[in-house]
Amino acid sequence: MEFREVMQEKYKEILESYMKDQNEQALYLSQKFSRKSIEHKISPEEIISLHKTALLDLGIEFSEAMLPSFDILLEVMMAYGLAYREHQNLRTIQQELKSEIEVAANMQQTLLGTQVPDVDCLDIGAISVPARQMSGDYYHFVQDEQGAVSVAIADVIGKGIPAALCMSMIKYSMDSLPEGQYEPSQVLESLNRVVEQNVDPTMFITMFYGMYNTVNHTFYYSSAGHEPGFFYDHKTKDFKELYAKGLLLGVSKKTKYRQFEKKVEVGDIILLMSDGVTECRTEEGFIEVDTLKGYIQKYIHLEAQEIADKVYKELEFLQGFQLRDDFTLIILKRIK
């Protein structure tokens, strides 16, 4: 028997049984039938036609005059049928897109992957959580032969897929910098030229680039419009802003970046972040910088990675577990 004939028979059975004694079982079977119909893409108007045929087949007594009314019902349901089919098509397309984006997001993870360097004198922690599937935030570690650890933290303005593609471009530029050329101001100047030339004029990048010299324990840094980081002074138990002003990458070709430096003692901590951290919004308004410092202070005795994870958990909780912006926090703690 053809599938439709089976459906026809089944429908007739259910209808007959219900017409006889209005039993619950028939109602239950109808629900099952309805799910099965949807599964097999049977449209609403086909169901009406089924109903009409079943009534005639069963020879149930009803006024002949009623019969043409089903034609009207059928016509009326036609548009619903079309809408339903369109919905089905869109669902398929949506599924396809979703899986493609998943592939892209995984690819981004792989492409942009970075290894947290392992150095004796530093305890390093990093966390980066995207607000949507693909992140506009990015961080990258580079360790050179002299033992210097460089860290870049960036935010592509403009979110989603275009931002992610742009990030990949930046990462490749960073990886292809000549060996030994990790002076923060130079790195930013050279990346600025890349972004200025290649990127759509409405897309921009903020970046903070720092280099920790493990010999003289000095942190050299420059910023291209990025949120300033914090410096935690272990002796005074005080936070200072790692202020470094500089123009966003990609706005003007000739931009020069100023380089700053900070001597780091044992116990001191460098905190770098994206604006998703400081521009973190809650129901009641913004999180003030002091609130953020409070959280950091609360966990400051822990290991770097734990501090990052715990601060993220607190901010996530404050925002009702719904991030509005990508979130990235990097912590460098001098341990000896």
Binding site: D155, I157, G158, K159, P201, T202, M203, F204, T206, L248, V251, D275, E279, R281, F286, D325
Partner: peptide, 17 residues
């Protein structure tokens, strides 16, 4: 009352244009 980096991007775009 609020502007994030995306908003900033709009102004840079306007400025450049």
């Amino acid at each position: 009352s609020y502007m994030d980096s995306t908003g900033l991007g709009v102004f840079v775009g306007l400025f450049k244009s």
